[in-house]
Design a protein around this nucleic acid. Structure first.
Length: 425
RNA sequence: GGAGGAAUGGCAGAGUGGUCGAAUGCGGCGGUCUUGAAAACCGUUGAGGGUCACACCUCCGGGGGUUCGAAUCCCUCUUCCUCCGCCA
């Protein structure tokens, strides 16, 4: 969430930011309400503090009186404290009410978009900023990946439906091995680039969901295990960044660079139609994630580094891709700036999102209480960045479709050491 | 699942009703000494709220309670350790 102090100091900027996210009239209403609640909270806090101060002072006197044996005087003072206690109770309730209301509101205010974020209301308004790779000329009878998966018995969607439900595919034989190869290849690339590898829990508690911003905003998108009150992770980012919740990192540990492979579980309520066919949209899919935690002044450099890193992997895989900068309307809740990578799915004749690299600046860190002490000795919120490197199923789909020929599918050269085969036929 | 024990500052570890935001040691930072470093010695060193700055307030795993007053007593939850059972 945004820092109240920041909103106080940058009221207009916050309102403009929310307007870029198409909040309209609500933008200034929300900001005004934050300022009002904050003022209320501080006023009540001051009153409460004064009451407690009086009460503390009295208690100390009473203690001294008992010690000196003046019980009568002590009992007189005791009588006075009950009134203060009552007052403190009332003020305490008031304070909780005000600060809860403030927190609830702050949770509903998304991050402020970076100045370069283009205006817009939907993914149609995202701006292409980079494109690389040739789109292969395929035969007329080229197949979409779900047909290829069936033809070569790589992925069985029906079997997944039988044992679990739609959106839970079963990978088989060379399909399973190709997926495993991609995971290992991505992890190795990340590790070589300095990312520290984690293997993490797939369930997180409520505090973690709040920390990274899935809660309360996207509650309906996560699977929730009610009996144990645990959430099934929608991305490895959630457990990985939450390793750093309530942490003060040493300045010389920054930047933190970390990577992990996890399955991701998403309810995807409301999805339908051709866009969810095959591997395009799943309830369970594998992803390799990278994060960085940096000093504020270095986070945009880190963002560039992450983008360059993902580009490097796609170049090696020789897949045609483009990079989009997300517009205000399509930007994630916690993100200040996001670049989506899309691979061209030749047989479907459409672009598939395979990575999303974001700088959350200090929005997440504020919820997480992720700080470091800067060189002036001042406690400062870190900046947090995350990106996919990469989402497996759509890369897999891209490989199947782009690398198909008349009687099989070639395996990209860099993957052959990982798959142990160079062709599916 | 059953029986016990424990949770305190970056770490270790004292503290069983007031003078405790908390001894002591280590670590960190600053200084003295030294050509420099080490050692030794001196000083300093938790977080949040609040304030122009102070004052002041909150925090000893989380929540609730008793009391004029709680790190300390009670209830509850969580986590960790030991033993038993079960188990990949």
């Amino acid at each position: 969430m945004l820092q109240v102090q920041f909103i106080r100091d940058n009221k207009d900027r916050v309102i403009r930011g929310l307007e870029k996210r198409n909040f309209g009239e609500e933008a200034s209403e929300m900001v005004e309400e934050v300022l009002r609640l904050d003022e209320e909270r501080r006023a009540v806090q001051t009153k409460l503090d004064n009451t407690l101060a009086s009460s503390n002072k009295l208690s100390k006197e009473i203690g001294n009186l008992f010690k000196s044996g003046d019980h009568q005087k002590a009992n007189e003072l005791k009588a006075q404290t009950s009134e203060l206690k009552l007052e403190a109770k009332t003020l305490g309730d008031e304070l909780n009410k005000a600060s809860d209301a403030l927190t609830d509101l702050l949770y509903r205010i998304p991050n402020i978009p970076h100045d370069t974020v283009p205006p817009g209301t939907s993914d149609e308004d995202n701006e292409e900023v980079f494109r690389h790779g040739d789109i292969p000329q395929l035969d007329d009878d080229a197949l979409p990946h779900w047909e290829l998966a069936k033809k070569y018995d790589l992925i069985d969607f029906d079997l997944g439906s039988k044992i679990t439900g739609a959106g839970f595919p079963v990978y088989k034989g060379k399909g399973a091995r190709l997926q495993r190869a991609l995971i290992n290849y991505f992890l190795d690339k990340n590790r070589e680039a300095g990312y520290f590898e984690y293997f993490l829990p797939y369930f997180v508690n409520e505090a973690s969901g709040l920390g990274t911003g899935q809660l309360p905003d996207k509650e309906g998108q996560m699977y929730h295990i009610e009996k144990d009150d645990l959430y099934v992770i929608p991305t490895g980012e959630v457990p990985m960044i939450n390793c750093y919740r309530d942490t003060i990192v040493n300045e010389d540990e920054l930047p933190v660079k970390a990577t992990t492979h996890t399955p991701c579980f998403r309810r995807e309520a409301g999805s339908y139609g051709a866009h969810v066919r095959g591997l395009n949209r799943l309830h369970q899919f594998e992803k390799v994630e990278i994060i960085q935690i940096t000093k504020p002044e270095n986070s945009y450099e880190a963002l560039d580094e992450m983008i360059t890193h993902v580009k490097g992997i796609l170049n090696e895989l020789k897949l045609p891709y483009r990079i989009l900068q997300l517009c205000g309307g399509d930007l994630g809740f916690t993100s200040a700036i996001t670049f989506d990578f899309e691979v061209f799915s030749t047989a479907q004749d459409r672009w598939l999102e395979i990575s999303s690299v974001s700088n959350c600046e200090d929005y997440q860190s504020n919820r997480l209480k992720l700080r470091y002490r800067n060189s002036d000795g001042k406690m400062t919120l870190c900046h947090a960045l995350n990106g996919s490197s990469l989402a497996i199923p759509r890369v897999l789909a891209g490989i199947l479709e782009n690398y198909q020929d008349k009687d099989g599918i070639r395996i990209p050269e860099v993957l052959v050491p990982y798959t142990g085969f160079d062709r599916i036929s």
